[in-house]
Structure formats: structure tokens, C-alpha cells
Design a protein around this nucleic acid. Structure first.
Lengths: 206, 206, 206, 206
DNA sequence: TATGAATGAGTCTTCATTCAT
DNA sequence: AATGAATGAAGACTCATTCAT
């Protein structure tokens, strides 16, 4: 990489990381571009060299954050060696929520701003060619169990994601209507119920 | 009511109704207090006599809107004469979503800003003494079926509300990942699955 | 006038006078709203209470300046008691240019920005009811000489105004292609020639 | 021309032509150097190798545009074979205004920015040695009619140019105070009147 | 109670110009 | 000669909030 390229990457990283910190600590609305560039140690104009506006950098950060979260969830899942599909989903949900529970600013940041579109784009993107995207991984999860037959798998995933994210936002951040610890078993039961509602009888065995 | 009291109420109503219209049509962020008072035909200072800030009036409006929505759902339910508890819940969900589907600005307004706290406060508030609050109504729904035994009914309600509101936001407003029409059967199935996951075996069988 | 009204007028006057000074001394482009309000001793927001933007205050100032200039020209003309219409026009042109020659910033300010529309609006506006507008005055000039019959008087006036303003801008401010003193006789001759070209033969004498 | 020289000329031409297009289409104020270099396909720094700033390139473009305009007017005049000096001037004015009327952006560009200095410099410059400059051409026009004796011919030309350009700007672009079609006869009469005011009685009469 | 003029901090955005490569 | 990333001053404009009337 040339010196110029290197310097560009440095500035870009500084902007990303400053914006991320500020978004997490004071929220997006209260973070100004002035704050971001000041923290990053670059000039205001530099921001506009790389981003359209505050929401541009926000969307890129959310996608990236979500991507990393699911990537590490997948890695852990592989280590865990869980045979059942249902258990795998619960494992991933539990892993991700566990991370978010430990880092409430990230939970706030992601939940408040994550649309399904951004989410899917995030988990669909490959970092490089050798790496599977989250969606491909999900396909593999399904195929890994040859007896499993699912109806409308993407809709199912969507329902689970919406339920989990929106329920954990309220319980973790606001303890409303119950603590997340209290909610957990019921939430996981609900997720299992949704999976079963999408599971077709196993294909005919002779 | 005295003349002065009457006048106060008039201004208050004007502010509420102007803010409501503006929040629906241009969103909360883009609506300024200047816009609200201008539309209401009162002076800027008057706003601050009644509200702390923009978010104060917003929260009151959301609660009120949600309250009315559920009130009319309950009224329709009574007319409909549905025996099963599960079907009653589906009826209410379907009624409310149906209304929101026809009025997307309200859907956007409520979903983006409705926390469980505001929601419960809204449906818990009684208009007057003779009228039941939504929560009391919900208790009655449960008791109406003597054979029904529910575990953690509020948690169940919370899960259903979060799932329904968050899933219909994305599908109705953004058609993501599918249209709401496509989602509907799966969503209702999921809700039924959640209810069943909270249903205990009927009491007192020999 | 109430105390509030009086204060409003004070602010308005301060803004007008500050903007006028700055426009004359550094030009419009180089004058910022920050400069204007600072000089006026009011807050930035106050500017936007009274004007749409910099060009709003500019147009109002130009119109006002032009109006005053022609008003004083008319006053002088009345004192001078000149019978011939042609001489009256020359007198006014000479008076106005004389003023501008002594105050080059005003010449620069007006000439660079005066369109015929703004000009006519300026000289057409009455300060109050008893005062004639410049245009009415001009009509009177024509009628004062019963033998005078003019073709297309407004077009004639337009040609004279354009010629005079544009020729004196270049000669007074840039001495191009000659000094204004050198130009003067030829300019006045040209104006007389234009008037004559618009003069019809006097109405039938017996 | 060497390869390097050729390349320089290419860049220069691209900058000129891009700036010209942008100045005409969006005006000078709204055109940034970024716009110009982007359209020209050269780097920002390159601009500063050839021009001091935006106004440098503007002045050169205006001069060039005016030069070409008058050059083609002269060519047409030669074809037309008009004997009278007065008619020749009217012919040139009419030709130039006719061109500008058909291309209002050029009219706006030139009129807003053309000073007599730039104008004279433009029409005085020779493209190459064999070609006459416009001013020399004008001298020839005068001498072509041996009986014609003019007082202060440059002043006369200046007055005509100022009158014509400033009157056609307002009428063509803004239809103020009348349309250009309406103005035309009066304008040409005025020009003829100015010429006559500069014409001395023919020499050498017995 | 009600008003609305005044505030001025705060935000976004643009752009001419420089300079290391 | 050419590049284009980086700069940061400069500018326009908004808006919640206050307070004298």
C-alpha cells in the first residue's frame, strides 16, 4: 500500500472509530459531525470526503457491527458442536443477546437503528472469498440436518429476529415489563414454538 | 367550566391536534415547535406553559393514540362474540394491525416511539370510572374461559406485542423481507404458538 | 408607538444601516450576515426575523437608496426653475450622476445591482400620500410643457437610464475609455439626441 | 508541438471548455473549481497550474467569446455590402444582438461580466498577423466613407456599446420594461441619433 | 395567562487552496 | 507537469428557550 493509501485508511479508521464511540456514548442525535472529526483528529472537510452525512457513517457502522457479532456467534457455534437445528438457533440468539447484554450501548445503538434491510445486507456480506456469509451459513445449518424440512425459512428467521431484538431491547435496557433473566426462558420457548410452527413433518422414510 | 378554563382547553387541544398532524405528516425530528404553535395559532411561549418540550407532547400523543386504538379494538371484539381466548387475541392483533395498515403515518409514528412503558400506561389508563382499562379487560378475557390456565400472562402479552409491532412495521412500511399479506399467516401462527407455549394443561381433570 | 414596536424599529434600522455601510465598503459578496449582525449589535437570529437572506436586505436597500436619490433630484429641479423638458432631464441626470461621482461606493453598489424592475419599483413608491412618486413626477414633467409630444416615453426613459448609468459606471469608476469629465458633453448630447428622436412634431398650430 | 506541449494544450482546452459550459449553464457564482476540473477530467491542482482563480478563467473566456462574436459580425458585414457607415454600425449591432437573443446564456454571461476594458482588449487582439483586429476594422469602416467625419469616434462607440448591451440585457432576459422586439426600433433610432450627434459636416465643400 | 421578539449556540456544508507524492 | 487528499475557515440557517410586556 502506498503512503497515501495508508494515510487514507488511517483517517477513515479514525472517523469510523470516533463516530462509533460517540454514537455509543451519547447517541446519534446528540453527536455532531464536529464532535466526530474533532475526536478523530481530522478536518471537517475530510469527513465529507468519505461520508455523505452522519447517517451514512451510522449505517455503515451498524452493518459492520452486526456482521462481526454474527460472525463470532458462528465461530462459537462451530466449536460447540450442537446437533439439533433448534438448539443451534437458540445458541446463536443466546450468544448474540449475551454479548449485547454485556454491552448495553451497542444494544441501544443497534436496536434503535437496525432495519431488516441493513441487517440482511450486513450478514449477507462476505469479508473475503473464503469466508461464508451469514446467510449461507444459515442455509448450511438447515441442510446440516437432512431430516429437517422448513416452511418459509426466511420469514421464520425474520420473526425470530424481530421478536428477539425487540424483546431484549425493552427488557435489558429498561427492565420492562420484566428483567431479561426472567424473560429468557419464555423468549426461548417462544422461539422454539415459532421454529416448530415452521417445521414440516420429516420427509417420508421407507 | 369557566371562560378561562375553557380557553385553556381550547389552546391545549389546538396544540395537541397540530402536533399530531405534523408528527404524522413530517415526522417528529422535522417538526419544530415553531411549526406546532404556528399551526395551532398560539404564541410560542404558550407551548411552554403546557409542555416541557417536543418529546413531552409526543409521549402524551402516542399514549392517547394507542389507547384509542385498543379501545376500539375491544369494542369490536365484544360485538364479534368470539369464544376462544386464542382467537380473541388474534382478533385484537388483526384489528389493530388492520387499522395501522390503512394509516401508515400512524404506524410509523407509534412504532418508532412506542416503548412498552408508554404502551402499558396507555392501555392501563381509564378514561373514566365506569370504563375498564385495557389491562382489566385483558384479565377478563382470560377469566372468561374458565378452562384456560396461563403461565406468565403479562410476559406472553409482551412477547406478542413486540413480535407483532416490530414485524408489521418492517413488512407494512418497507415490504421487508416480505409483504405483510405474505407474512400474516405465519405471524398469526407464531402468535398462536406463543400462546400455546404459555398455556398450562386445563385444570381439574379427573 | 409601544416600547416593543419602538425596539423592533431600532433593530431594523440598525440592520439596514450596518448592511448598507458594509455593502458600500466591502461589497455584497464579501459581506456576511455575521458581519451585518455584529455591526448592528443584534443576534444572528434577529436578522432572519426581518429578512429572508442577504439579497433581500440588498434589494430593499438599493430601492431605498435610489428612491432618495431621485427624490432629492426632484427637489433641486423644482428650485432650479428650468422651463425646457430636455433641460430638465439633463438636470436630473446631471444631479444624480454628480451625487454618485462624489460617492463612488454608492455608484458601485447601485449600478452593479440595479435592475430596471427594482429601479421602477423604487421611484414609483410613495413615502406617504401627500408626496408624488417619481414616476408621477416624470409624467408631470412631460405635461408641464403643453407643446411637447413624446413617443413611447417609458422606453425613452429606459434608454436614457441605461445609457447614463452604464456609461458613468465605466468612466467614473474605471476611467474607461475616457474620464467622466471628458465623456460628459458627449453623453448629454447623446441623451438629447435620444429625447429628440422620441419627440413628435408639436401639435398642429393654426 | 512536442508530446508534452500537446498534452498541456489538451488539458488547457478541456478546462476552458468545461468552465465555459458550466458558467453558461449555472452561472459563475454557482460554479466551483471542483465542478470545472471534474468536468474537464483533470486534477484540482492542475487548474492552478494554468489559472490564478475562477475569475482569471472567466475573463479569458469572456474576451474570447466577445472576440469571436465580433469577428463573425465583421465577416457577415463584408458579405452584405452596405455602403453607409450608419447602416454598417446598425448591421453589426443587429447581428450581435441577434446572436445573443438566440443564446441567452451567452448574453447573461457576457453582459454581467463584460467591462469596457475586457471588451476592448478582446476586439483589439489579433488572432494572427494577417488578420485585422476589430478596432482596426472599425477604423477602416470610418475611412471607407471618405465624406464621413466623426468627432470622438471611440467615445461614440463606447456610448453605443453601453446603450446596446445594457438595454438588450434587460429587455431580452427580463422583458423589462418592454420586450426586445418592441424596443428594437427605438434602440436603433437612438443609436443613429448618437452617430449623427458625432458626425461633423462633410469636409471640403466649396 | 398569553405573547412573540430576541437570543446565540449549534449544525451542516462548501470550497479555494496547499502540498506531499 | 500532474495529482488529489487534506485542510479549516467561512458561511448560511435553525431552533429551543427565555423574558419583558
Amino acid at each position: 500500500m502506498g503512503k497515501v493509501e495508508e494515510n487514507k485508511q488511517l483517517k477513515l479508521d479514525a472517523l469510523f472509530s470516533s463516530a462509533y464511540d460517540l454514537f455509543l456514548s451519547q447517541g446519534i442525535v446528540k453527536t455532531s459531525i464536529h464532535d466526530i472529526v474533532q475526536k478523530a483528529g481530522v478536518a471537517k472537510g475530510t469527513f465529507y470526503l468519505y461520508f455523505k452525512d452522519k447517517y451514512d457513517i451510522r449505517d455503515r457502522l451498524i452493518a459492520e457491527t452486526a456482521r462481526k457479532l454474527f460472525l463470532s456467534a458462528h465461530e462459537e457455534l462451530q466449536k460447540a458442536d450442537i446437533p439439533s437445528f433448534e438448539d443451534k438457533i437458540i445458541f446463536i440468539v443466546d450468544y448474540v443477546i449475551g454479548k449485547l447484554e454485556k454491552n448495553k450501548p451497542i444494544l441501544r445503538f443497534i436496536s434503535k437503528n437496525l432495519s431488516w434491510g441493513v441487517f440482511r445486507q450486513a450478514v449477507t456480506k462476505k469479508e473475503n472469498d473464503t469466508e461464508l456469509s451469514s446467510m449461507e451459513y444459515f442455509q448450511q445449518l438447515i441442510q446440516a440436518d437432512p431430516a429437517l424440512r422448513l416452511r418459509a425459512p426466511e420469514t421464520m428467521l425474520f420473526l425470530i429476529a424481530e421478536l428477539a431484538s425487540s424483546a431484549c431491547y425493552s427488557t435489558i435496557l429498561e427492565n420492562e415489563p420484566v428483567s431479561f433473566e426472567e424473560l429468557k426462558p419464555d423468549l426461548y420457548n417462544a422461539i422454539r414454538a415459532i421454529i416448530r410452527a415452521h417445521t414440516l413433518p420429516a420427509a417420508g422414510l421407507p
